[in-house]
Design a protein around this nucleic acid. Structure first.
Lengths: 126, 126
DNA sequence: GTGGGTACTTTCTATTAGTTAGTGCAACTC
DNA sequence: GAGTTGCACTAACTAATAGAAAGTACCCAC
């Protein structure tokens, strides 16, 4: 492929929102939310406790993004105290299953990663 | 990612190593690098052009992180001008294939996501 | 009436991403 | 033979973003 074609294609890809959706799904808190919601619906604070070390702001933001992309369903009951349930949509379930597979892979291969790191670190600090 | 900060890095790695590896694999530029390297080895600048809109700093950082985790192999030939080839390790190929599946899913379901977004936006701007 | 819980929003600061410029050397152009 | 370009980075700086903390508005238990 010619260099000029390569350049214009990257330009088009950056403008195309495909990369952005992928970023939402693979975002730091997005992956953890999706994996959690795969087991069952969660309430906001419950989800926050389950994930751990998420700020409320980031969880809200992540959930809003995923809801807008049609991956997460938000069910707010107009009661006091407020009760909001989050669950996966069909679309969200598809994404979440793939993300969970990645997470499981990470789990399985953790030892290899740690070994690689140790080798890497030792190679440059003799 | 403060790769140079030894102290806080080991601290973070001890806290939740599994989550961190997943973050490296699903990082913004990490996914794009892995998918590209799945087709063939790339040189640094070549990879930069292929991905598009990556700063050299971020590409360097991403590649170093992935190399340290044992996902990417770096082959630097001591010639002038410098020539450095990046390729996937066995471990990296496994991760990359899963990431590519996610990217393909995003491609397939893009229309649904866009429809969901439109519905979401229209619902709160009448 | 103090403390805790609900689901957020707002404000402010710490961290991180991205931009720009520089490195040393060779191979091109002119 | 001066100037430009490309290579694979690194360092310094700035813009953007994440995270911490507090505020909101309401209820319940003690």
């Amino acid at each position: 492929m010619a260099v000029s074609d390569e350049g214009r294609r990257s330009e088009a890809e950056a403008m195309c929102p495909h990369r952005l959706v992928l970023e939402h799904v693979t975002s730091r808190w997005g992956v953890l939310v999706l994996i959690r919601l795969l087991e069952r619906p969660y309430r906001f604070s419950e989800l926050r406790r389950a994930i751990g070390r998420v700020s409320e702001k980031m969880l809200t933001q992540t959930l809003q993004t995923l809801e807008r992309d049609g991956l997460v369903h938000r069910d707010a009951k107009p009661v006091i105290p407020p009760r909001v349930d989050y669950s996966l949509t069909g679309l969200g379930r598809e994404a979440a299953e793939q993300v969970r597979e990645l997470a499981r892979w990470t789990d399985r291969r953790m030892a290899d990663v740690l070994a690689a790191r140790q080798a890497y670190d030792e190679a440059r600090t003799p």
